[in-house]
Design a binder for these strands. Sequence first.
RNA 1: GCGUCGGUGGUAGAGUGGUCAAUUACAACAGACUGUAAAUCUGUCGCCUUCGGGCUACGAAGGUUCAAAUCCUUCCCGACGCACCA
Length: 398
Amino acid sequence: MKIITDEKRIDEVLSRGVHEVFTKEELRKKLLSGKQLHFKLGTDVTGSFLHLGHSVIHRKLRDFQELGHKVTLIIGDFTTLVGDHSDKVDMRKETTLKDVKQMEKDYQNQFFKTVLKGQTKIRHNSEWLKKLNFNDVINLTKQFTISQMLDRESFVLRYKAGKPIGLDEFLYPLMQGYDSVALKCDVELGGTDQTFNLLAGRHLMSCFGLIPQNAIAMKLLVGSDGRPMGKSLKNFIPISDNPNDMYGQIMSIVDEVMFDYFELVTRIPMSEITMMKKEMQSGTNPINFKKRLAKEVVLFYHGEKKANEAEENFINTFSKKEIPDKMEEINGSKGENLVDILVSKKVLISKGEWRRLVEQNAIHDLENDTRIIDVNLKLEKNLTLKIGKKRFVKILIK
RNA sequence: GCGUCGGUGGUAGAGUGGUCAAUUACAACAGACUGUAAAUCUGUCGCCUUCGGGCUACGAAGGUUCAAAUCCUUCCCGACGCACCA
């Protein structure tokens, strides 16, 4: 494989979406040398979906692949099975090997929507972590001090706030760092939240007499509420979303973060993005830019046709307030209470919710273009309902 | 091991015997408006209800009381301090 050493391109790849490179000069030299570099990304497999935030890092890996470099994805099966207990609620729920296998499969499917499979190897960190004995672990811990650990912001914040920190949590950076030692990779990627772990890898490698890896900390994509996108917060946009939802979710991000999205999850040239930013500042309506953003992202995952459809659907449904072509269909029997159907089919959580929605005038009968005001309405004929402004459901008499 | 403080709804965090299904903020949901599923404003926000109320919930289990998130006992969990420190 030919390694691209175009200086301009390398500089673009090293700056777009990048928060910090440890260290930039070092890595730049390596990239310019024409040698094929080995990039590493480690991941836990705790959830079965990826969101746009993850994809920022995946895109960067792709960038490097396109320069001719190779990638290893490390599945943190060992780490996952040991269980990260900072999420205390789920401490009891043991993740089984089977779960991990399934989640790994899902992860890969989504991962390879962005990253090139042909230039990627997959490894599992149980391969080497399982083999370590207590002695080895102690040796690893000797390379760090408590105060070094407390350099990590999340530790020191929790410590000062009187929140618990598990001793095992100190070991995660070591495990992740040891992954780098085992693989002897050249560069590791992660979000800015991974900075500490990335540097731990760098540190450990030098302890083991290896050339320390370079590390790239990517900017974090913020969610619709302006906070970093994460699973625990409900502000993420899954990349497995269907085109319509994905489009809509992107339309609902706050205006302020729109250009971060352009930078992080599209390939629109930075110069163009800067121009759009300027136009917006001089008063252009942001909605057109946001539409472009939404379309661009949907296009990446679903192709042009679906992207166009999603845009159309959005304009029709929300701008023109038309009824979408496709919607959820559920069955009910004649004379059955509408509420019972909706609750039993899990369209609504409870009867209380239904009552509230009816009281709030949120239920539209689209067949007759009226609002439903009778809480006890029974199903007499097929109905098309609009619940709130974005949920549609068709009820058919079976 | 001893001691002190603490464990509350999706989250943060008030409340320390009745007026508590629990102040508030965030999230969520709805309505109005719009540039959109943005922003803003307003409302809703445990479950069931014949709309009177009923039921379940403030770490767990017991107890006191007409009445407990609130008091007592035991247990579990956390933070802090002391002790211990190969």
